[in-house]
Amino acid sequence: MRFRHHDDIRRDFPGLAAGALLVTAPPVPAHAAEVVARQLATARERLAAGPEGQFPEIQAWRRAFTAMGLRATRYRCASESLLRRLRRDGELPTVHPLVDVCNAVSAAFAIPVAALDVARIDGDLEVRRATGTENYLTFAGDREHPAPGEVTFADTGGNAHARRWTNRQSGLSAVSPGTTTALIVAEALHEGADADITRLTAALAGALGAVRVSVLTREAPGFTI
């Protein structure tokens, strides 16, 4: 089982920097809470200096969404949504130790981070443009089909594990108490993204005890799950 970005995505978004991690056990709650507190403190410091819409990481994703024909103020990347919630509520909701760590690191770096249950992925997983036939399961249990051309995480079995690339993950592969192995993917488009993805993946690897970590490039775009 492998993860990669389709060549067309790397062609259309040449500034893409991505990292992938394989995690086989969630962090213990106490350790996760320490990591979350530290990362959210960093996120709050950044927000104190200005709103998330001014962050270069967020602005780059807004430009990408606009290029995909989406209204960037209606459809936001996951890290922007987390930062908006943190600015509004002062905290992020507690979901699962692994997800909580990923969300906190995502907020601190302002970079979208996806966490997927590997057991719920059918075959290889690729970030590519949808054909319109893929099946997407919402967290409410409803089924949708990404629009043709929409960027999604699609597996060999025809499942879409995201809508609008980094906007919304699928309920199908959401991490749960029964998750034993998770694929973590971080993606960035801003200037300096390569260095930031390297730092982000290192932070996640240390916090989650990842068994495999890779920074993906055009020359080495694949990651073995």
Rank of each mutant, 00 (worst) to 15 (best):
residue 135 N to F: 04
residue 165 W to R: 08
residue 163 R to A: 12
residue 149 G to Y: 03
residue 96 H to I: 00
residue 168 R to K: 13
residue 131 T to F: 02
residue 154 A to N: 05
residue 129 R to D: 02
residue 100 D to G: 09
residue 100 D to S: 07
residue 161 H to K: 12
residue 126 E to L: 08
residue 147 A to V: 06
residue 106 S to V: 00
residue 159 N to S: 15
residue 154 A to T: 03
residue 138 T to C: 07
residue 104 A to P: 08
residue 167 N to H: 14
residue 114 A to Q: 08
residue 137 L to C: 08
residue 117 D to E: 12
residue 115 A to L: 04
residue 104 A to I: 00
residue 142 D to A: 15
residue 98 L to W: 02
residue 104 A to H: 05
residue 135 N to Y: 01
residue 156 T to Y: 00
residue 107 A to N: 11
residue 167 N to S: 14
residue 166 T to V: 15
residue 107 A to L: 05
residue 112 P to G: 10
residue 119 A to N: 11
residue 131 T to V: 04
residue 112 P to Q: 08
residue 170 S to P: 11
residue 141 G to R: 12
residue 151 V to F: 10
residue 116 L to W: 15
residue 143 R to H: 15
residue 129 R to K: 14
residue 137 L to T: 08
residue 138 T to E: 06
residue 166 T to H: 13
residue 102 C to F: 01
residue 127 V to R: 06
residue 152 T to D: 04
residue 105 V to S: 07
residue 143 R to W: 14
residue 150 E to I: 01
residue 105 V to P: 03
residue 113 V to L: 02
residue 159 N to H: 15
residue 122 D to M: 01
residue 148 P to L: 06
residue 148 P to Q: 09
residue 125 L to P: 11
residue 139 F to M: 14
residue 160 A to M: 02
residue 104 A to F: 01
residue 117 D to C: 02
residue 169 Q to L: 15
residue 156 T to E: 15
residue 148 P to R: 06
residue 122 D to K: 11
residue 116 L to M: 15
residue 149 G to F: 03
residue 100 D to P: 05
residue 163 R to E: 01
residue 149 G to D: 04
residue 117 D to Q: 07
residue 152 T to L: 14
residue 124 D to W: 03
residue 141 G to D: 09
residue 124 D to C: 09
residue 158 G to F: 09
residue 107 A to F: 02
residue 106 S to C: 03
residue 114 A to P: 01
residue 152 T to W: 00
residue 140 A to I: 03
residue 103 N to W: 05
residue 141 G to V: 09
residue 148 P to W: 00
residue 129 R to E: 10
residue 118 V to N: 10
residue 165 W to E: 04
